[in-house]
Amino acid sequence: MLSFILKRLGLAFLVAVTVSLISFVLLYLSGDPAIALAGEGASSEDIAAINVRYGFDRPMVVQYGAWLLSALTGDFGESYYFKMPVSSLLAERLSVTMLLGLCGISFALVTAVPLGVLAAMRPNSIIDRFALLLSVAGQAMPSFWFGLILVVIFSIKLRWLPASGSSTWAHFILPTVVLGYYAMPAIMRLTRAGMLEVLSSDYIRTARAKGASEGRVLFKHALRNAIIPVVSLAAVQMGFMLGGSIVVESIFALHGAGFLAYESISRNDLPTVQALVLIFSMFYIIFTFTADVLNAWLDPRMRSA
């Protein structure tokens, strides 16, 4: 198990370095940052001055090395637009996004996994149909529309929950539901499919032949094997929630990292975008690494891989 973890860690590190290189280069390919900074009608002297000030005149490799080194110490440079260190900008915005992402994935898992198990226990029953209906609706409804409907019902009509902002925990309930409901159908259906397959397997019959109770059969013997693909999926969705919650953040006026990414791209705020791309991909790498380790713990056959 330890050698498996070390191997995966090494792999994750290599992926992280590659991703950082690609994200650095890609952003430079999108246009000359000095021109973007100086504006359309800037003179060549202005551009040259900007090149010197921000170090754009140095070779690409040197720029990458300098950027990576300072990034490792938490220094991502200064935002062109906000005129403040990117790191403090990120600290402020990321906490909102991470809280939202954690709540969202937890909501999705807590609703989807039990529902998937119930649906698999009684395929084609009313519970199964209800779960299917719920998941089809979740897949079909755009999250901006669902978010607005929730605001209309719970904030405007019933006045139970605040519609926007991020100051109290109550502000996070509606965004959590919207974000979590978006991820729920896939998790639910994967749990259901996995449980259906595992429940008809020979080792479940063996467990029953030993006199194991239904709960023991379901949770100890079946769920552990059925949940393995769900772990990988949840990791990817968690990464997606952090980077892709722009829509939800905009609807509920949560100033998170997703919204910041959108703003910074439209303002050509290069250091911020670079830092965000790097951070988001690091999150993806951390989540997939965690999922791999979790899966290896669940399924011993993966430990030798």
Binding site: R205, A209, K210, G211, A212, N225
Partner: peptide
């Protein structure tokens, strides 16, 4: 039935490759 199964009557199955829980 559960109290009998595995305790007083038990069964050996045909498929040894798949009858044990892999986890």
């Amino acid at each position: 039935l559960r109290s009998l199964r595995g305790a007083r009557m038990s069964m050996i199955f045909q498929e040894p490759m798949t009858s044990l829980n892999p986890s």
